[in-house]
C-alpha cells in the first residue's frame, strides 16, 4: 500500500482530466473554439515525454559512472516509453492541426512548419537510438555505447524542439516562451484541468515504465546476478 498511492492518484487525475476535459466550460477563442480541449492531451504528452527522457538520461549517466546493468535497463525503458509519448504527442497534434490550421494555411505551409520538423527530428534521433541498440550484440558494449548516444540524443533535443522552432516563423503558438505555462494566455478554467492533467499523464508514463523495467529485470535475472 505504501508504494501504490501514486498509482491511485494517477488514475484519479486521469479520470478527472478526461471527464473535466470534455465537460467543463472552456473559454471561446478565435479559430480554436472547442478544440482547445486538446490542450489537456497534446501538451501533456510532450511534457510527459520530456520528463521520461530526462529520467532516461539521468540513468544513462548513472550507468556510465557505475557500470551497473540495472541502470541501463532503467535508462532504455524510460527512453522507449518516452518515444511512445512523443508519437502520441505528434498524433494528437495532427488531429488538432487538422481542425485549426487547415482553415487558413496551405499544405506546403504546414509541411514546412518548423515545430513539426523539429519534433520529427527529435523522434528520429531517438529511433536511431533503438536501431543502435539493436545492432550491438554484446551486452556490456551495448549498454555503454547506447548510454553515450542517449546523452548525445538528449542534448540534441534542445536545439531541435526548444531553440530552433523559437527562432523561425511558425503557425504553432509559443514563439515567445512556453504558451501553456504563460499565465496571461491561459484562462483559469483551463488551468484547473491542465495542471492535474500534466501530473496524471506523467505518472501514467512512469507507471508503464516501471512495469516494463520489472519485466526486463526478471528476464535478465541471470545476467544481473552473475
Amino acid at each position: 500500500m505504501r508504494k501504490t498511492w501514486w498509482k491511485i492518484v494517477c488514475i484519479i487525475l486521469l479520470i478527472y482530466t478526461v471527464v473535466g476535459g470534455f465537460l467543463f466550460s472552456v473559454p471561446a477563442r478565435e479559430i480554436l473554439h472547442e478544440t482547445i480541449r486538446n490542450l489537456y492531451f497534446h501538451v501533456c504528452m510532450w511534457m510527459a515525454m520530456m520528463v521520461l527522457f530526462t529520467t532516461s538520461v539521468i540513468y544513462a549517466i548513472r550507468y556510465l559512472r557505475s557500470q551497473n546493468l540495472k541502470d541501463d535497463i532503467y535508462s532504455v525503458n524510460f527512453a522507449k516509453v518516452g518515444i511512445v509519448f512523443g508519437v502520441l504527442g505528434y498524433a494528437t497534434g495532427t488531429v488538432w492541426a487538422s481542425y485549426t490550421w487547415t482553415e487558413y494555411a496551405t499544405s506546403t505551409q504546414i509541411f514546412k512548419e518548423p515545430k513539426l520538423l523539429g519534433a520529427a527530428i527529435a523522434l528520429l534521433v531517438y529511433f536511431a537510438y533503438l536501431v543502435l541498440r539493436g545492432s550491438i550484440t554484446d551486452v556490456d558494449k551495448k549498454a555503454k555505447v547506447s548510454a553515450v548516444y542517449s546523452i548525445f540524443a538528449y542534448i540534441m533535443l534542445f536545439p531541435s524542439i526548444w531553440i530552433l522552432p523559437r527562432l523561425l516563423e511558425s503557425l504553432h503558438p509559443g514563439k515567445e516562451g512556453n504558451p501553456a505555462l504563460n499565465f496571461n494566455d491561459l484562462d483559469g478554467r483551463l488551468r484547473i484541468v491542465f495542471y492535474p492533467a500534466i501530473i496524471g499523464w506523467t505518472l501514467l508514463g512512469v507507471w508503464i515504465t516501471s512495469l516494463k523495467i520489472r519485466l526486463d529485470l526478471l528476464k535478465n535475472k541471470n545476467i544481473l546476478h552473475g
Binding site: 520538423l117 523539429g118 527530428i121 527529435a122 528520429l124 534521433v125 536511431a128 536501431v131 543502435l132 540534441m156
Partner: peptide, 12 residues
Amino acid sequence: LMVIMGFPVIIP
C-alpha cells in the same frame, strides 16, 4: 548506422 544516426542530427 552512421547514416541513420547522422541525418536527423544534420538536418537542422
